[in-house]
Design a binder for these strands. Sequence first.
DNA 1: CCATGTGAACTACTTCACAGCC
DNA 2: GGCTGTGAAGTAGTTCACATGG
Lengths: 277, 277
Amino acid sequence: MATGRTHRPATRSRGIPEATVARLPLYLRALTALSERSVPTVSSEELAAAAGVNSAKLRKDFSYLGSYGTRGVGYDVEYLVYQISRELGLTQDWPVVIVGIGNLGAALANYGGFASRGFRVAALIDADPAMTGKTVAGLPVRHTDELETIITDNGVSIGVIATPAGGAQPVCDRLVAAGVTSILNFAPTVLSVPDGVDVRKVDLSIELQILAFHEQRKAGEESPAEAAVRAAAEPVVVDAAVPGEDGGEGAAGESGAAGDDNGRKGPEGDVPAVMPA
Amino acid sequence: MATGRTHRPATRSRGIPEATVARLPLYLRALTALSERSVPTVSSEELAAAAGVNSAKLRKDFSYLGSYGTRGVGYDVEYLVYQISRELGLTQDWPVVIVGIGNLGAALANYGGFASRGFRVAALIDADPAMTGKTVAGLPVRHTDELETIITDNGVSIGVIATPAGGAQPVCDRLVAAGVTSILNFAPTVLSVPDGVDVRKVDLSIELQILAFHEQRKAGEESPAEAAVRAAAEPVVVDAAVPGEDGGEGAAGESGAAGDDNGRKGPEGDVPAVMPA
DNA sequence: CCATGTGAACTACTTCACAGCC
DNA sequence: GGCTGTGAAGTAGTTCACATGG
């Protein structure tokens, strides 16, 4: 493992920037694809293109992990796959539980990207007795009453919440009390957790809203008086302010991977995904 | 609108930072909740807590939109809901198509967060003849052959791709050729699109990998000195939204400022959820 | 007084550009 | 010669702290 990386100021594992951590999975996927095609080495330029980032950024990212490349040559694919996997903690098995087996929960349970990345769905949990006992993605759906037992028995430290908004916080509290310290939240709620617990959220509606923002801008920016029209005295009532609108949204987001672009693009996003059909 | 906002340096719509745009949906949701409870006004402090961000950031974000608050009082909930909705382009109807009606596509079709935010699912499209004709979420699944017609007839500019990895790029190309300029990609692939087309990606496996990274660190690196450096007293709530351009990340540490008091943290979470049962 | 709105300071991330090594 | 690894420069985003105005 670590070569004798002797010195190196803060380079070592201690200070990997969050932005870099967020991109490691991206590199890993691109590398895995190369590995499957038996490509032995890649240059930062090629790998960057495959991952959708620019090469300088990629090299800088890798520099935080150590010096795993060879000047004049590039990076050894297999070696890099291993190093990144280890850095991300994917060389170990991570049992996870999915709570809330609705459309989204089922999609997540069926997502193939888990197993291939070191994650194992230890159990599916739902509060609805009608769901209990059913089999989803080859696993039996168990009742919420068993939540604590399941977490403890399987040593689960990562939980996925795919319940409606209302049930999210209670479920979160129980997960945390049972020992879960990392939560991926799909419910449209701001969860409160004690210090030391990580929460990542995924909200499809937010992604769409961001797209709408840019979309709107594209349409409007070509005309001169544009802003005036829309922003100013615009017609009609705006319905957005209407209360009663949000009810519940539930939603879903999940799936596979990330996207990027080669040609060019504008914004990007990153969020979780599940297996597409 | 209303006031004649006459001047205002750069404040206006032109330079809203991406990071701010990514948070507007968050504020909007918190505001909508307040609106439903008929709360007339909120202070930046209260709203920030509800959205899971710190108040200084929230005020700065709002300052990019204009001066919509009242000193000494706070913000008018209804008015702010309207302003943010308008800024995001949610005061208009956005027809969207979902391509790939598998587990995920179905979950997305059933997601209630769309309609409530100005989005309307214009059509569900799938390449599998076995799916064609079936009804999902009250809508008939149509065959890929009709893709171009559907896009054109409905004036769709936003497309959601929930197909397997292999079919994503071809679908993307067709969507773009037909006129779509914003794409939300759930397939684990880096999409290539021409200039001017926005792509946002959602990848669950990436989110889990990021959680695993932090989880691993918690377990192993508890050494005394090291921890102090950064992870130390960091609350740790990370959110998935990405600001910058490519894969940014929004990490969060909010120690100092806001007062997260109690033992809890007030993270955030916002995402779509699907109906469980 | 109180809470907004914002310049200024600071921190995080990105991009440049080139020295170093294969 | 080619490509990595990385200081240095540049840019974006966050937080401070306080003047401003209801």
